[in-house]
């Protein structure tokens, strides 16, 4: 039985009860433990957003970065010390919106960093505005008359940019698939992106299904 407490901080998670990020949180710790990654050799970069709030709940080396810039910091860390396991936790807003250029650059470089995106199709920490993955037509707080933009499919985008990286979409409601995919990404030698499809339990209802 893996010792998940090894990676936990003493801070109680602040996500909404029932948030799908608890499963990402558990899946990551299970993978770290199964792969025996010592916590002092693990650096996790957290973007700004609900997913990034995991920063306080783990007790490895970490950087709670600027919004959109988690991948940049991860790149710097990995280039300086390849011996470190370097991860990025973010959301669709930070990774596919504010920081999309950095995602593309990291995939082109195929740098050995692992990017986990809690994609809930919304900006949720800011109470529910449209994000780069919000379906066209959706009414959100920032698009009350309907979102005019086509959504980004990050997996297609990244596969198109560099077919040699690991890019996978998983259903964030399925813990077995999620855990398996996180571990696969961690074991992959090179850049990995897992797009974790989620539903925001607080603000998701406004999205067109």
């Amino acid at each position: 039985m893996p010792n998940l407490n090894n990676y936990r901080s003493t801070v109680t998670p602040t996500w909404c009860p029932g948030c799908y990020n608890y499963m990402v949180f558990a899946g990551l710790q299970a993978a770290f433990s199964a792969l025996n990654i010592p916590k002092h050799k693990l650096v996790i970069n957290y973007d700004i957003g609900c997913a990034g709030n995991m920063a306080d709940f783990l007790n490895t080396y970490g950087a709670h970065t600027l919004h959109g810039r988690s991948i940049c910091m991860a790149m710097g860390e990995k280039l300086v010390n390849p011996d470190l396991t370097v991860c990025v936790i973010g959301g669709d807003g930070g990774i596919y919106g504010e920081g999309l250029n950095h995602l593309i650059a990291a995939a082109r470089a195929n740098t050995d960093i692992k990017v986990f995106v809690s994609n809930n199709y919304l900006y949720s920490l800011t109470t529910g505005q449209t994000s780069p993955t919000t379906p066209k037509g959706s009414k959100t707080k920032s698009t009350p008359n309907g979102n005019l933009n086509e959504p980004i499919d990050a997996i297609k985008l990244i596969e198109n940019i560099n077919p040699h990286v690991f890019a996978k979409r998983v259903d964030g409601r399925n813990p077995l698939e999620l855990n398996k995919s996180i571990k696969e990404a961690m074991e992959f030698k090179g850049f990995a992106l897992i797009d974790i499809a989620q539903e925001c339990i607080a603000f998701g209802k406004q999205l067109k299904s």
């Binding site: 650096v43 970069n45 950087a63 970065t65 600027l66 810039r69 940049c72 910091m73 991860a74 790149m75 710097g76 860390e77 280039l79 300086v80 010390n81 470190l84 250029n101 950095h102 593309i104 650059a105």
Partner: peptide, 24 residues
């Protein structure tokens, strides 16, 4: 030396911050 020409200045600065955090 590790010398990088990244995608933009935002990345240059944040990447350098990551590098400094990692001991560079």
């Amino acid at each position: 030396l590790t010398v990088v020409h990244p995608e933009d200045e935002i990345s240059a600065a944040n990447m350098t911050a990551g590098a400094a955090f990692a001991g560079a």
